[in-house]
Design a protein around this nucleic acid. Structure first.
Lengths: 334, 334
DNA sequence: GTGAAAGCGCTAACAA
DNA sequence: TTGTTAGCGCTTTCAC
């Protein structure tokens, strides 16, 4: 990489002249600016990012900590973050916590050494289980703002972007009730997570309000077992005629299982799931989905963080942004 | 963040003493080392990464450029890269090219300013179409090594990690022929990509060698249209009794479509697809998959790059690593 | 055993 | 209009 020093030498001017010329300083003569810029162009000069970071005490880099990159929702959020960040001239360093508290702590520690200006993260499952928040607080006390999305730690005072999980399942369940469904089950692969619990509660509320059966909840601990477990559920409760799925896979699996069981979808049974277009088409009929607008969530998180970074002095109260879900009706419901 | 300077001041010693003490230098007395380390611990001192990078002229950061983070295979490779990189003390900066040549160039340019020590990338679709490679060469000539995986530019002399695509479909097609299938179709959502072409060729070869029908190739340009297009294919060719799917979604969609068509899988029709466990379970029966070992690919790519970085002087010939696919037999084939 | 000083590449206050 | 200098945080050579 060519440096200012080399350009200066070649042009027989001082380093600062070159620097100013490249930054279009008023101080420098047009002629000089032109000469400098031409040579810089020729040598494809790019200001060294590391030196700039050191000088300006900011990296224009955001640390993103994701529990699971293979989760389609989380990948999509990451996509949204990357887009928005790039738009504002920020890079992202991605760490994957693998749902582990230890790895989450490590990643936070590792990047809190000047590598990044702030964090966007989704709390790991283990962290939520153990309800640990000290590492978040410590990071923030070092002057690194955090934005949490989806799964958040309520007791940490930071910006957050969340989904209206409770409402979403409440309304979805209601809508199945309106279809005159009599026995609606709730299937979840994420009952350990804050969002999973919220979704279950929304379902519970709707059921308890309107239907005369108790909530029927199926918890899938390993996705691999989903087909079998769902099959078991259908066998045990022959009268199930509606399913709310809390995660993106179990909805399509529920449809496929129902079909292989000889049930007609949506005639005999309606299925709604949290999912996205690209997964929803893995069943025929296509799954009616609760869309979380993952990209929007990512973009919002990035915006919140970048705003904080741009006004570091401004110590205003943390904001929580709720991104409303919307239902994309398809042929798996009436 | 606390700096050496501050520690030095507080301890009434010089900056260099503190630095040496923290690095366990022989020069420094045990007593001093102890004092210094205690204070550093107390203040949670971490050497500033940016300063280190500037000093040592390396960042311990890898730039990863991925065409599409929502592609399950690519996400999994990223996972593999991240793991291996973390293991060796490297961070990764992720850019998403969105299959665009322009974005790919930009990302490369943007990070080639000292932000990263090298690149791992999968060539964007547009880049492959236009067969552009200048930007890769330029980057490499700046002293930044590149490792390409999956979709590679053959004319660029760099390390590569690829899959035995041709062989994989050749063998998969053969295996359906061995099942006594008479009319095997090939479905692809990636016919513009180098790997897509290789896969098609493997299929073609097997068909031309052994069966008396011409290759039947269905090209899906937008995933959204997959169910419809596949339905069309089945309608037009009622005697199709085998399907090879080149991408992860169309395999499960083919099964689901066949079922909705009244066909029995695998009795009437066998389906094999490039996919992974978590997508394969989106059909009942589960899809027989050609596994690409995405995580291994990622890990290999990271290893190759890190090796180059560790021996920058060593100008040895580029290596190409082939990660063999394996078939995970499931109930969608006989 | 400890400290001073140079230098990584850059910007900016100040001097000329 | 241009140049000198200091300094961002760190390591390392060389002097004491």
């Amino acid at each position: 990489m060519v440096t200012l020093k080399q350009l200066a030498k070649e042009l027989n001017v001082s380093i600062s002249t070159v620097s100013k010329a490249l930054n279009n300083s008023e101080e420098i003569g047009q002629e000089t600016i032109k000469r400098v810029k031409e040579l810089a162009e020729l040598y494809n000069y790019k200001p060294n990012k590391v030196a700039l970071s050191l000088k300006q005490n900011k990296t224009n880099t955001i640390g993103v900590i994701i529990p699971d990159i293979l989760n389609h929702f989380l990948a999509k959020v990451l996509f949204g973050i990357e887009r928005e960040a790039t738009l504002h001239g920020y890079n992202i360093i991605t760490c994957i916590s693998n749902e582990s508290l230890e790895k989450e702590k490590e990643s936070l520690q590792l990047l809190a050494n000047g590598s990044v200006d702030g964090f966007i993260l989704c709390v790991a499952e283990e962290t939520q289980m153990k309800n640990e928040i000290e590492h978040f607080k410590k990071t923030m006390s070092q002057g690194l703002p955090i934005v949490m999305f989806d799964r958040v730690a309520h007791d940490v005072m930071c910006d957050k972007v969340i989904v209206d999980d409770f409402d979403a399942t409440y309304r979805a369940t209601k809508s199945l009730i309106d279809e005159n469904r009599k026995h609606i089950a709730f299937i979840s692969n994420i009952d350990g997570l804050s969002v999973g619990k919220l979704r279950e509660r929304g379902y519970n509320k709707a059921i308890l309000e309107s239907v005369d059966h108790k909530p029927t909840v199926l918890s899938i601990s390993k996705l691999k077992d989903a087909p079998q477990k769902i099959k078991g559920l259908f066998k045990k409760n022959k009268n199930i005629d509606g399913v709310i799925a809390a995660d993106s896979s179990s909805g399509v699996i529920a449809i496929n299982t129902a079909l292989s069981f000889g049930l007609k979808v949506p005639k005999d049974i309606s299925v709604v799931g949290f999912s996205s277009q690209s997964v929803a088409i893995h069943s025929i009929p296509k799954l009616t989905t609760i869309r979380q607008h993952a990209k929007v969530i990512g973009a919002n998180a990035a915006q919140l963080l970048i705003n904080r970074l741009k006004n570091m002095s401004d110590d205003s109260d943390p904001k929580t942004k709720i991104v409303k879900t919307s239902v994309v009706k398809s042929k798996s419901t009436l």
